[in-house]
């Protein structure tokens, strides 16, 4: 990859010894939107927090390399990492109101983000903040600067968070469920905004979501995670058309789609995700997989290239897409 932006190699996170993020590797190009999807608890947020070096106290980094524009983040001193965050690297979390300081005007918060990485006076900071609010589509930016978070709606607060994340022109934006707490009409506005920012500024976006509609809307490529591991990576249209991992296929089949007869039985994935303490040998999806054979529980399938630009970790990858039609039955 010549225009490589981010390269994550063999990233691991443990909690109480359990490998909740296990050998995660992926790469992103400049100007690319990569979606990280998977069921609740599969390790999406911890992956993002690990690469930003913001893991909670209970979690421990168990190795791996994170290369952003060639710099190894894992090897960076704390101070240098702090400087990088908010500058080259920004994050947006799910709960906009929880991430903003309720006692400070939104203007001060946006200006503070700007001043952390720019030399310039108050007037200049205010101008930069106002321009950024304009850019994220907040009407009456000048007036809004002097308001407090509680005076703004959830959608506006999320836009303020995006303004803070973008004001220093990061090359990578990590967005963990950025629209889950928002209404669909506001979600559409925010997704439009992110799309525009990618097009205009060439930033890369790593978006975490469990909404296949959001993935279909905004992602260029998709990485599917199951029980701490990446099981499939593919361009978005290929993934939806012909998944190469049984889990991806079953996940897609369980979403009600236009081409499924109303009230027809939806495909389901029997059983549940194993608890991290109970991860055994082999493929972690084997216990729920209709295609599983003896080899699957004995040997962990590596994340291999199964077609140009497509990776899958499955011994029976070629047959995976047959499970997609489960919903039409």
């Amino acid at each position: 990859m010549t225009d490589a932006l981010l390269r994550v190699e063999d990233l691991g996170v443990t909690i109480g010894g359990a490998p909740v993020v296990d050998g995660v590797s992926f790469a992103m190009r400049k100007g690319e939107v990569l979606a990280l999807v998977g069921e609740s608890g599969c390790g999406k947020s911890l992956t993002a927090l690990a690469l930003l070096r913001l893991l909670p106290p209970a979690a421990r980094l168990a190795g791996g390399r994170v290369l952003l524009d060639g710099t190894d983040l894992a090897a960076l001193p704390d101070r240098a990492m702090r400087r990088l965050r908010g500058q080259a690297l920004s994050i947006i979390f799910q709960e906009p109101t929880a991430s903003l300081d309720p006692l400070t005007t939104v203007g001060s918060q946006v200006m503070e983000a700007w001043r952390a990485h720019n030399a310039g006076g108050a007037a200049q900071a205010r101008r930069a903040a106002r321009d950024m609010l304009d850019a994220v589509g907040i009407p009456d930016a000048e007036k809004r600067l002097d308001q407090y978070p509680f005076e703004l709606s959830g959608g506006m607060c999320q836009r303020i968070m995006i303004a803070i994340a973008l004001i220093c022109g990061p090359s990578l934006l990590v967005a963990d469920e950025p629209t889950t707490a928002l209404d669909v009409t506001i979600q559409a506005q925010i997704l439009d905004l992110m799309r525009r920012l990618v097009a205009e500024r060439g930033a890369g976006v790593l978006i975490i979501t469990h909404d296949m509609g959001v993935v279909a809307d905004i992602a260029d490529r998709v990485a599917v995670m199951y029980a701490g591991r990446i099981v499939e990576v593919a361009p978005v249209t290929d993934l939806f058309a012909a998944p190469r991992h049984p889990y991806t296929a079953m996940l897609l089949a369980s979403v009600p789609r236009l081409d499924v007869v109303p009230k027809a039985v939806l495909a389901t994935i029997e059983g549940s995700v194993p608890a991290p303490e109970a991860f055994g040998s082999g493929c972690r999806f084997a216990g729920r997989c209709p295609l599983a054979v003896a080899r699957c529980t004995a040997e962990t399938p590596p994340l291999n290239e199964v077609a140009p630009g497509r990776l899958a970790a499955c011994w029976r990858s070629a047959e995976a897409s047959t499970l997609l039609s489960g919903a039409a039955a």
Partner: peptide
């Protein structure tokens, strides 16, 4: 505004924001 879980369809839809 509701994104369709189908990239081909979703990207050719007319959107009203």
């Amino acid at each position: 505004a509701v994104p369709e879980p189908d990239p081909v369809r979703q990207r050719t839809r007319q959107r009203i924001v």
